[in-house]
């Protein structure tokens, strides 16, 4: 039996990533609590911890949501994406600490079950200003839990990438719910409009980056093909493709990545089997296309991962005529061998 998923491998980069993340979180919490006591002598540690964990989690979530579009806009951000799962799990841990502390502080040791109390203590579902903001927080926590619990590639393989991806798009629902959690909660109790400004700025930043990245992709998808003959379409000159890199062409609703390497051209589906990463933004290293997101590898000749891995992407027939690259837009079944086309001039 082949590997069902790729085992987590520890390497110095991953360790440095986690150490940096842990240091950042510790720095934030220490500063928040330190500044809180420094500026507010009557503050209590419980309140500062609840607020510190909650704001740290929300801040980290902004970073997590920003990394995707940042990488589409500038590939130099890719090293941050590789271990983004770790950011997600750390964010969930902070959110859980916040929610657990808040539940204990505000709901425990009374006449009711604390978890039931979170959902029922404020009955003002009929009011906007008094709406029980805890419900938004509980919803977000449940979604984040589902994601953190299934974040490992083991679950990606077992739930199927489509189900997994859908589940993990839930991060946007969680983010939306958290904006409401804060807007109907802390921002109702706090007096400073600057806090509302901070939340609005974060929201605008997340939305703005996604729009910018989306606009760039939409522009790329609007490229038109040069010519069409006998069902084949002419794409570009072979030398318009950088060596060991690809150009991506939108073909009938799919994106096709056309690679040039060692005087040859091959075409694969642009969509990585792991998490739909853009293979056309990857690179050929040691004879394999390497996905820019997490480094899955595929052979350009047949779209298959080298043994022991078993992932396959669709391949396409290509020809080079007079230096121009032509493509048969009908995708072949994933893993179908296709002889790379030699560049003739």
């Amino acid at each position: 039996m082949a590997h069902a998923y790729r085992a987590v491998q520890w390497n110095p980069q991953k360790r440095a990533y986690d150490a940096t993340l842990a240091a950042g979180i510790a720095l934030y919490l220490a500063l928040f609590v330190g500044a809180g006591f420094g500026l507010q002598p009557h503050a209590t540690l419980e309140t500062l911890l609840i607020r510190g964990f909650g704001t740290a989690a929300l801040l980290l979530l902004h970073g997590i949501l920003a990394i995707g579009p940042l990488c589409r806009l500038d590939r130099r951000f890719l090293p941050l994406l590789y271990n983004r799962r770790h950011l997600g799990v750390a964010m969930f841990a902070l959110a859980l600490a916040h929610a657990a502390f808040a539940t204990i502080q505000f709901h425990a040791l009374g006449d009711a079950d604390p978890l039931a109390s979170v959902l029922t203590a404020n009955p003002r579902l009929d009011s906007a200003s008094q709406f029980p903001f805890e419900l938004f927080g509980a919803f977000a926590l449940a979604v984040l839990f589902g994601m953190a619990a299934t974040s490992h590639d083991f679950w990606l393989a077992n739930l199927t990438p489509r189900v997994w991806k859908t589940l993990h798009m839930g991060v946007y629902a969680a983010y939306g719910a958290l904006v409401l959690h804060v807007a109907f909660g802390a921002l109702q109790a706090e007096a400073s409009p600057a806090l509302t400004g901070l939340v609005a700025l974060g929201f605008a930043g997340v939305v703005g980056l996604h729009l910018a990245a989306g606009a760039r992709e939409a522009r790329a998808d609007r490229q038109t093909v040069a010519a069409e003959r006998d069902g084949w379409i002419e794409l570009c000159h072979a030398h318009d493709i950088p060596e060991r890199r690809a150009r991506v062409f939108p073909i009938g609703g799919e994106r096709v990545a056309v690679f040039r390497f060692d005087g040859k051209v091959s075409a694969l589906s642009n969509v990585c089997k792991h998490q739909n990463g853009p293979l056309g933004e990857g690179r050929i290293v040691d004879g394999c296309v390497v996905c820019p997101w997490h480094g899955y590898q595929y052979r350009p000749e047949d779209g298959r991962s080298p043994a022991p891995f078993t992932d396959r992407v669709a391949t396409y027939r290509v020809r080079v005529v007079g230096g121009r690259v032509w493509l048969d837009p009908r995708a072949l079944p994933p893993g179908t061998p296709v002889e790379p086309a030699k560049i003739d001039v």
């Binding site: 934030y28 500063l31 928040f32 500044a35 809180g36 500026l39 507010q40 009557h42 503050a43 209590t44 309140t47 500062l48 607020r51 510190g52 704001t55 109790a189 706090e190 007096a191 400073s192 600057a194 806090l195 901070l198």
Partner: peptide, 11 residues
């Protein structure tokens, strides 16, 4: 962290 800590309503 500093901004939020400073902007909290007085305790």
């Amino acid at each position: 962290a500093g901004a939020i800590a400073a902007l909290q309503a007085p305790f």
